[in-house]
Design a protein around this nucleic acid. Structure first.
Lengths: 201, 201
DNA sequence: ATAATTTTGTACTATTTGGTACAATAAAGG
DNA sequence: CCTTTATTGTACCAAATAGTACAAAATTAT
């Protein structure tokens, strides 16, 4: 897209792109959380050395916020793409089904970077991070529009206010993630997907 | 209840009861999580000095597991008590309403010690703690029995299998906690309580 | 007073944490 | 070869972490 791979006029050429290592960092934060990520492991995940890290970024925290931003971008992009393929309602269902299947298969579930790290921050500092709150609002707004579209084209028959329905969906989603991560029996998990489908009707 | 306050034959009398300081520790863990609790703050919360702490307990971890056990006991006791006063269904609703009100009023919400610390452990070690899993099973079983009772006496009209309904309820509950802690707008929170009431019908 | 027991205070340890400083080296163009 | 730029390696730092050791003081019964 942008002029990433243009040769810099002179000097040793770069061996990594900033955006690429942010993505690697994002995946690591996503899996381990912010506090659960120590710098050494993060560096291994990013494939760069400490010296390069601190020449490129200000701190671990800065990389985290860049990761959070990338997470939002990628989530929205994925949802829009899926929408084009299978429609609004099916996208909302499949997103959750994907997590359930992943938990069943590999017994591991990354969950939601925003919610999980928001919770970490909340537990640590006793207040909601203002940054997290606005990110959360972005998610709610996006899903509200998403749901609205489904209601208008008839894929979602539940005529509850789109924003409220989006919040119900997101709440259920984060609850399912927590339940899965808390090790709920697989025998009862499928019913949770029915629950979601009932909600979207 | 037990012979807590009997005088020990000789020596300086105890100034704190083990169970009492465990309860204080529980409340601190509940609010800050396990990793988010450092020993010095924990000691302040428990009102004892480090020397006393390590003479009474083996480690921070031991106190945490004792706290977790107490948490379960107290939760079940509270639910049984409320059941006697306002019935099964109303108890399930009010429990959540209490959290919502707390979040609205003081802008702070402890959430669920088991789920929150289970998530911490999960994120850190990549697997579900076996201890947490069995605790989770205890909770599911308790709520399943609770729901069953409500279905039999007609307070809950939703005739979905009691265990599945209990899991739906718990999932919704943990989702609501996450949403509140993530700083969802208060304007949409009330609808989440309607959602719970609809579920229990 | 003395023995028994509990709590406190102080000092210490070993490990891990995020972060810094800086020289050495690698890879390109001029 | 020389300059420029990117990466690496090594060494270090200050702070925070959970936990230990042990003497001193407090409070009781005998």
């Amino acid at each position: 897209m942008t002029n990433k791979s243009v040769k810099n006029s002179v000097g040793r050429p770069k061996t990594f792109e900033k955006d690429d290592v942010i993505k690697l960092a994002m995946n690591h934060f996503w899996e381990h959380g912010f506090e659960g990520t120590n710098l050494d492991d993060l560096l291994v995940a990013m494939g760069i050395k400490k010296s390069s890290f601190y020449r490129t970024f200000k701190s671990k925290e800065e990389v985290f916020f860049l990761s959070l931003n990338l997470y939002k971008q990628e989530t929205f992009t994925l949802l829009e793409q899926l929408k084009g393929e299978i429609g609004v309602k099916e996208t909302l269902v499949q997103i959750i089904k994907y997590d359930i299947d992943e938990a069943k298969k590999i017994g591991k579930l990354k969950g939601c970077l925003l919610i999980d790290c928001g919770k970490e921050f909340y537990k640590k500092h006793g207040i909601i991070s203002e940054y997290m709150r606005t990110e959360m609002d972005d998610f709610v707004d996006f899903f509200a529009k998403f749901v609205k579209e489904g209601q208008l084209n008839g894929q979602i028959t539940n005529q509850l206010d789109a924003k409220l329905l989006a919040v119900r969906y997101l709440t259920l989603y984060t609850g399912i993630i927590s339940s899965l991560q808390a090790g709920i029996e697989f025998s009862v998990v499928d019913d949770l997907l029915f629950f979601v489908e009932e909600l979207l009707k």
